[in-house]
Design a protein around this nucleic acid. Structure first.
Lengths: 204, 204
DNA sequence: ACGATACCGAACACCGTGTTCGGAACGTTC
DNA sequence: GAACGTTCCGAACACGGTGTTCGGTATCGT
């Protein structure tokens, strides 16, 4: 016996409604009632499927993971945004995605409840990398740390990008991402931070 | 006329109570009532000073900033943790702090509400750096981005450190921090990530 | 077409929030 | 040390959101 169409309909209706709402308001400014209204679903039905709003969020994010896997080979991309020749890398593709759909930017925007969404997304992306990266260790930098640093750096770029309404494009964002992740801060900043971290006054 | 002692007492009682509670439970598992009980303060009194739990948190964090400024010259450090000769840098000093008081680690631990605290702390540290760093730009990496990347990297190390109960000491944590921030990922990881980001399969 | 299952929605108990107010306690000032 | 002003207290209250229950209805699978 296949899965009842009714449950499938109900669940996706709820997923979609949540995403739609997250794009509009702050996550914890969203009441369960709002979701019900948006999805046109009965109260009791909701609680028959999920135990809480957070539970719904967690389950919804499993879908994001699928998107990521697809993205690995540029599958989930619209034709317009397809690279001229050959493939882009994962990061570039993601940045293009974000560039295309401003929604994600909004979802990642500030606010109290956004932090929750943000951390949840982090977890999913980290999972993805954990499954993708080969096992190895380099110069005493453990796998898990390297991976989390990559996620953190990506999100830093993303948030900085959309927060300041920067007039740079996805390519530039990707460039900065790779620069920071792979090479660290450029020379001048290296010196500045080096001095600060060493406790030497900065001359002011 | 100086500030009424009663208000001072009330406010610090509330600050301390909040911190004490954050060390025990998840931030939003803490009810206002709990704070009142812990601080032994009346309900109406609380709302005479702060509009909400979040408001209290924000105000409490102003203190953290003061600590940071003090830390810049190793002032707030206990004698045991003082560097053998001369000063440590800001980052090392902070790591030593965290090493000494496991509390902070707990506060920064996982969970739903921790994200809120975490983001708030981020903001404070970013503010601190914003006031401390000289204005400049390097290789197209804007000041604000460099600064946020530093904060993010610091927190990544911290969270990874305490999450996995790593058996490394503060010095090692500081070494990793500087490595990732200033030089980026080491060679092997550079290659691995480079390949992944470029969309080339990893050979599996 | 029929049995099983999912959905509906109104009603309800529950919990935490934030406000109000009169009286008691405390601090400040002279 | 007395008097005045401020702060604190705590019980009571209204409000809003959560999660559950249950009988009736609609939809599904076979």
């Amino acid at each position: 016996m296949a899965i009842d169409r009714r449950v499938a309909r109900t669940r996706t209706a709820l997923y979609d409604a949540l995403v739609r709402l997250i794009r509009q308001r702050d996550y914890d400014a969203i009441r369960v009632e709002d979701i019900l209204e948006e999805a046109d679903i009965g109260r009791s039905t909701f609680y028959a499927h999920f135990t809480s709003k957070d539970d719904l969020l967690r389950n919804s994010l499993e879908r994001l993971k699928a998107l990521l896997v697809a993205t690995r080979s540029n599958e989930g991309l619209t034709k317009e945004a397809m690279p001229p020749g050959g493939n882009w890398g994962v990061s570039r593709t993601l940045f293009e995605h974000v560039f295309e759909f401003t929604d994600v930017q909004v979802a990642l925007a500030g606010g109290r409840g956004a932090a929750v969404v943000h951390e949840a997304v982090d977890e999913v992306v980290a999972d993805f990398l954990r499954e993708t990266l080969p096992p190895q260790t380099a110069d005493g930098v453990p796998r898990e740390l390297a991976l989390r640093h990559a996620v953190a750096t990506f999100n830093t770029i993303l948030r900085w990008w959309q927060h300041g309404k920067r007039d740079i494009d996805a390519a530039e964002a990707d460039r900065l991402f790779r620069l920071l992740l792979l090479d660290g801060l450029p020379r001048e900043w290296r010196d500045t931070f080096g001095r600060l971290l060493d406790g030497k006054p900065d001359g002011r």
